[in-house]
Design a protein around this nucleic acid. Structure first.
Lengths: 106, 106
DNA sequence: GCTTACCGTAAGTCATGGCTTACGGAATGG
DNA sequence: CCATTCCGTAAGCCATGACTTACGGTAAGC
């Protein structure tokens, strides 16, 4: 039921914005909070929630904490989402969508 | 930005449970609310939110309202999720791990 | 040493939204 | 025509959580 936690965590707009900023690569809290309409502690709290949900991972680099996305945390949510295309009646359509989606992955 | 609304809508556990019950096929509100730990009006409110988000569609059948999943509402969310499997992210992570190894253990 | 930068945590405030009960409208059956 | 079934809506209560300010702790530079 980890996809439920991923959904709840990614539901918040500012937290999702923080998460999306990590899509281009790992960043420090300082850089993540820059430009956001909330304070830096708020970003820290969001990162804490993201980490507890397994969506990001953290590493220390001197005095900075570098955060990066953890794709394993997203995998279960993606599988759950795909389960709505699992109808036997739409098997043909499902296969077409899936092969189209695999373009550009891995 | 419709994936944000889909995330917010699917974040609620009971609402997600209602949505999952529609995965096997269209159902009436009566059947959807049966067995759930909440009242029937609560289910109606959830269905209203799901409909406004474009995740379900409704049709009248006599005195009953039949709801069914709308996969187009899930498509954008799925695409957003897949955007985290880009090649750029892989390159960043590999580089980060490599430089971290070269620096030696902490 | 001292200072500065970077970050996490605590406590408290306040809005959001999910739930309930109560009600009203529309279609079917007798 | 009346009762019943099925459902949406309104009003109100209350818990959750997102945000702020204030503080403490740690690493690097002087």
């Amino acid at each position: 039921m980890a996809y439920g936690m991923a959904l709840a965590v990614l539901a918040d707009p500012t937290r999702r914005k923080v998460f999306e900023r990590l899509r281009t690569g790992p960043r420090a809290v300082n850089a993540l909070a820059a430009g956001l309409p909330v304070s830096r502690p708020a970003v820290s709290q969001h990162l804490r929630v993201l980490k507890e949900a397994g969506l990001v991972e953290e590493r220390s680099e001197g005095v900075r904490r570098i955060y990066s996305v953890r794709r394993e945390g997203l995998a279960e949510l993606r599988d759950w989402l795909d389960s709505f295309w699992g109808d036997a009646l739409d098997a043909f359509k499902r296969e077409a969508e899936r092969s189209h989606r695999e373009r550009g992955r891995k």
